[in-house]
Amino acid sequence: MRILIATDAWKPQVNGVVRSLESVAKALREFGAEIEFLTPQGFASVPLPTYGEIKLAFASAGSIRKRLDGAPIDHIHIATEGPVGFAARRYCLRNKRAFTTSYHTRFPEYIRARTWLPESITYSVLRRFHNAGSGVMVSTASIANDLEKRGFERLMFWSRGVDHRLFSPDRRIKLDLPGPIYLYAGRLAPEKNIEGFLSLDLPGSKVVVGDGPSRRALEAAYPDAHFVGAKDSDTLAAYYASSDVFVFPSRTDTFGMVLLEALSCGLPVAALPVAGPLDVIGSSGAGVLDEDLRAACLKALETPREKARAYALTFTWANSARQFLDNIIRAKALGQVKMVPTPLF
């Protein structure tokens, strides 16, 4: 099967969406699928306001049509709701091509954290975007339940995996910092609630791996924390394996790839009991979920590292790829494309 994945999230961005797409594509090829990507590369683009490392591509209907007309593609999957995603959706609707989508990011909450725009407006746009397809893939039951209540249709489960060889306890090194070491890794942005971690009164050291629009303000507000910037996967794995607790303060993530990466390195998790951590950690005993994040951090120190690693081993990219393929097969069997009077944007 030849599958085209249209995505606005792509290299050189470093985030969970890009890592997920790259990893599942590699696993899909092992199942015999041929994967192509339609990305912002090759299009003129402009930086996203307030987040310059993300580029918004000028993906016109004509340019997308030139790339897709006559291409030997069996299925189109639209991974993101950006310019490339909207253009691919428009192409599918005009050419009566079935397609699936995936819901990776809580854009309504992210946009509301930065602007005055109510979540209801953004959810209305996203609902119309996704409901035009043959199915929308979501990573957790909590997100599926939330979207179903908001009127999203044909929801399909698609979990994630982790590279157990790359993210391994064997990556452990000596960090020259007072222990215990509490680690955050990810984008430094308002919606991530990083202040919820950095403001905690904890013994030892706080380490922040990552970059983003909030970095300067956070560094100024929390000078005792150690900001080390964005790191490649090998270095990131070393930080995971060498810390004592992974702290995940976000209330808005749909999954949290970093949770699996940390666990795979034998690093217990402390997080809030919200969608994402509830689904990934749940009652596994591989971490602690508590509205009192400080209490969760201190309790997580008692979690055996072997338990965290063993739980992470149950998440594989092979299983993720099989779910993805099964969803596409089911969507193609339905052959359902909900036409809308006028394409969005």
Rank of each mutant, 00 (worst) to 15 (best):
R97H: 09
L93D: 02
G62S: 14
F58R: 12
G42T: 12
R29T: 15
A59N: 01
F58Q: 12
K96D: 04
E36Y: 09
V84S: 02
P49D: 07
T80D: 10
P108T: 05
P108A: 05
D69Q: 04
A59M: 05
A57C: 08
Y51R: 13
T105D: 02
T80V: 11
F31N: 02
N95F: 06
F31C: 00
R65D: 00
K26W: 14
G70K: 02
K26T: 15
Y51W: 15
A25M: 13
A57S: 08
I73H: 08
R89F: 00
V84R: 02
G42W: 09
F31G: 00
R114A: 14
R90H: 03
A113S: 08
I76P: 09
T80N: 11
I111M: 03
S63A: 15
L28E: 12
P83A: 08
N95E: 09
G85V: 13
G42N: 11
T105F: 04
A59C: 07
V84H: 00
A113L: 05
V84I: 00
L93R: 01
P108H: 05
F107C: 05
Y51P: 03
Y91A: 07
N95G: 06
G70E: 01
R89K: 02
A88D: 06
A61P: 14
P72R: 14
I35V: 15
G70F: 03
A59I: 05
H77G: 13
T80M: 11
L68F: 13
S63R: 15
F86I: 07
L117G: 05
E34R: 07
G70D: 03
A57H: 05
H104R: 12
G32I: 04
K96G: 02
K96A: 07
Y110R: 02
L48C: 04
S60K: 10
E36C: 10
A98S: 00
R29Y: 09
